[in-house]
């Protein structure tokens, strides 16, 4: 009798010990994973803090002037961010003007028109292309696309619009090949797969019942797309566009090759310019003097703030469709 009781006691002691061990190791694992999650937050905070810290010198020297001045003179140490900001916005706008209609069009083609056996291969091809490194687009742009534009599109634009008031200054100048327009076009080709692959997923999330009932009423494919699919997915499509815009704004390598790196603002989109990321990539390692380096980091901070806002809006909009779909 006592033997059994003692045995039971020992057993429950062992049990207690192993339970304690379980609880301890579980707490350890739990805290490790939580620390890793916090590290994600810390890394973004670290990026923000280090950029602010690095750009203090530039902002304290130039103040608000930094954001609205066009001059960029390493010799006289006079720096202003307006030209790169303009270049970033201009190239991204050109890219979006082309890539959004084409990208959405391809997504509609893939979800509504494409013969079934071709859907998967083309969809996969688009997604693979979204993963091609941007430096590939850059080297292609420099050696193939820019000379091509210099021979064909640019002389055509210049001669066509030379007598149209307003447009003549937009398309003025000798055809360099490289410049704002070329960079914008390459960005357009680059973000195209992003827009298409997100829009395709989003369009596929429209409940079939909605589309079928619209078809049942006798609507054409285009009417179903424009009055059922697009209104249902509007918020997410805008999110996809913002996401692509975030990519375009921050893209470095595809742009650096073909932008020409000229710190000036010209009315002509055929002229060379620069973007924030291209300026940093081109000049950072050669920057001499603290003020020069700090000004480049300040440029980086401006880019960070712009893209943060754009990406935050994009994510909120994409999340809204997900809530709507009840997922």
């Amino acid at each position: 009798m006592t033997d059994i009781a003692a045995g039971e006691g020992a057993q429950s002691d062992g049990r207690q010990a192993s339970l304690r061990r379980f609880a301890l190791s579980d707490a350890a694992f739990r805290n490790t994973t939580r620390a890793a999650a916090l590290l994600v937050l810390l890394s973004l905070a670290g990026v923000a803090v280090s950029l602010v810290n690095g750009s203090l010198l530039a902002f304290s020297t130039f103040g608000f002037e930094f954001l609205v001045s066009e001059s960029w003179n390493p010799v006289k140490e006079k720096f202003g961010a307006l030209a790169p900001i303009y270049g970033t916005v201009a190239t991204s706008l050109i890219a979006m003007l082309i890539a959004v209609p084409v990208g959405v069009g391809i997504a509609i083609f893939l979800t509504e028109l494409c013969p079934r056996p071709l859907r998967r291969p083309i969809g996969i091809a688009v997604e693979l292309l979204a993963g091609i490194p941007s430096i590939i687009y850059g080297i292609w742009g420099l050696f193939v696309f820019a000379p091509f534009l210099q021979r064909t599109l640019q002389p055509f634009l210049i001669s066509t619009f030379s007598h149209v008031p307003g447009l003549s200054s937009l398309f003025a100048g000798p055809p360099y090949g490289i410049g704002i327009l070329t960079a914008g076009l390459i960005l357009a080709i680059m973000v195209l797969p992003f827009i298409t692959s997100i829009c395709r997923d989003v369009f596929a999330s429209v409940p079939p019942v909605l589309k079928e009932s619209a078809y049942g009423l006798g609507l054409t494919t285009w009417e179903v797309t424009s009055r059922v699919v697009l209104p249902y997915t509007r918020v997410a499509v805008v999110g996809a566009v913002m996401l692509a815009l975030g990519r375009a704004l921050g893209e470095t390598m595809a742009v650096t090759f073909v932008i020409g790196n000229a710190h000036r603002i010209t009315a002509s989109i055929l002229a060379p310019g620069t973007t924030i990321s291209a300026a940093i990539a081109n000049e950072f390692t050669e920057a001499t003097g603290d003020l020069y380096t700090s000004s480049l980091i300040a440029l980086g901070l401006v880019l960070f703030v712009i893209t943060f806002i754009v990406l935050a809006i994009a994510r909120l909009m994409l999340a809204r469709l997900r809530t709507k779909a009840g997922r």
């Binding site: 999650a37 916090l38 994600v40 950029l51 921050g250 990321s277 880019l303 960070f304 990406l311 994510r315």
Partner: peptide, 28 residues
């Protein structure tokens, strides 16, 4: 709530310009 915040920040890091990451590591 931590997960919600981390997910949001992580999505932004996911598409943040990579040159910014370079600047950060340069500084640090």
């Amino acid at each position: 709530r931590l997960t919600g915040v981390v997910r949001f920040i992580n999505d932004i890091l996911l598409s943040a310009p990579s040159i910014i990451v370079g600047l950060f590591v340069y500084e640090v």
